[in-house]
Amino acid sequence: MEKISPKTLTLIAIIVAVSLYRIFPHPHNITPVMALALFAGTYFQKKWMAFAVPLVSMFLADLFLGLHSTIIFVYGAMAIAVLIGFWLHNRVSSLKVIGATISSSLIFFLISNFGVWFVSGYYSKSWAGLIECYTMALPFLQRSMMGDLLFSGVLFLSYWQIQKYWLGKQAVSS
């Protein structure tokens, strides 16, 4: 069996710790969901882990919180955020992380609310029903984008600090 590197263990620990936020009381729609996927796509060397770790963390939280009919749309949007993270991998900068986070938030909004329109029965299955669904969801977009930006900041800055700390330790011990 292949040994897991300290970097991979650190990434997993950060993602699991932040994903636990979902099971505690928090402001509605301010969650780390898309930030976790973006972060994982950016830093995991093994692409399968970039998908598996945030999706499994999300699924475990969903088992506790309750599964829902739009889960496939939510997880699909997360998978796209992982892909955006792959693009970000060698391009990490503050502005690019902010741009990737906003893009991920908008993708999540479009896909998850399409799922609500498609499976919920709340809206007519027409162009007008889809527009109504997106319009009704606009107030949630601001809060979820705030959460994504907040948690992307926490994840990326935490990881940067951890790397800086460990690189300093290695330089001292060499």
Rank of each mutant, 00 (worst) to 15 (best):
P139F: 04
S104V: 11
I162G: 06
A128G: 04
L11T: 10
D148P: 05
F51G: 01
F59I: 13
G153V: 09
A79D: 05
K96C: 01
A37Q: 08
W127I: 15
Q161W: 13
W117K: 01
W166I: 10
Q161P: 04
N113L: 05
L38N: 07
A79S: 10
K164A: 08
S126A: 04
L130T: 14
L36T: 13
F86Q: 06
L149R: 13
G85L: 08
F108G: 03
Q163L: 12
S5W: 11
F39H: 07
A52D: 01
F151S: 01
G168H: 12
G147Y: 06
I98P: 00
L36V: 10
F73A: 00
S93Q: 11
L38M: 13
T10K: 03
K47N: 12
L63F: 14
I30N: 05
G115K: 00
Q170C: 01
T101W: 03
P139N: 08
F114D: 01
A61T: 15
H28Q: 12
A100K: 10
Y159C: 01
S126M: 09
L110N: 05
H89E: 12
S104P: 05
Y43G: 00
S120A: 10
I131A: 12
F44D: 07
P25S: 09
V56G: 02
Y159H: 14
S94M: 13
G121D: 09
H68M: 10
L149S: 11
A35T: 03
F86V: 09
M58C: 04
S120G: 09
I102G: 02
M34I: 11
H89M: 07
F73P: 00
A35E: 00
S105G: 14
F59R: 03
Y122F: 14
W117A: 00
F140E: 07
I14E: 00
A79L: 08
Y122V: 08
G129K: 08
M1R: 08
I80F: 13
G153R: 02
M1G: 14
F39S: 01
F24A: 11
S103N: 08
K7I: 12
G85A: 10
F64Y: 15
E132M: 13
L130D: 06
Y159P: 08
F114V: 07
P32F: 02
L167M: 10
M145L: 15
V16S: 02
L157V: 15
I15R: 00
V154L: 13
S93W: 06
N90M: 09
L11E: 01
E2M: 11
L110E: 04
L63H: 04
G99I: 09
I30C: 05
V16K: 01
H89I: 02
L36Y: 05
S69D: 14
L60T: 15
F24R: 03
I80R: 02
F44R: 09
V53R: 01
T135N: 08
A13S: 12
S152Q: 10
F109L: 04
L157H: 11
I84N: 02
M34E: 02
W117I: 05
Y165I: 14
L141V: 12
T42K: 02
